[in-house]
Amino acid sequence: MTKNTTFDGRRWHDMGGTAAGPVPTDQHDFSLWEKRVDALMIIASGKGHFTVDGLRRVLEDMSEDAFETMTYYERWIASVNQNLIEAGVYTTAELGQRMSDVAARGTTYGEAASE
């Protein structure tokens, strides 16, 4: 890794005017788990637990690598979770325990989502 001594303060998400290739034309149908992430964001922010600005702040604080390697709603659930922990809605320990419980239910989304 080389040291970036020319950094001017511009952050990775601030893309306007930078060079890029053709606009991609791929489109996917949103899956159920993605729609659920979207709904959790709208509901939790609508009830005042955090703001869309908080959502964006955590997305921006994730690395550029996350933008390139994670899907849109993968980044969203990571940010929703971070904001909820910061807001004190639940603790990291509670999340960790629940994620382990979820994984123990099965190896597919359908199995893991059914209690």
Binding site: G9, R11, D14, D53, R57
Partner: peptide
């Protein structure tokens, strides 16, 4: 060019 969450595009 401060760090942190800002809604003013750099360009």
């Amino acid at each position: 060019m401060p760090p942190g969450h800002v809604r003013t595009p750099a360009y």
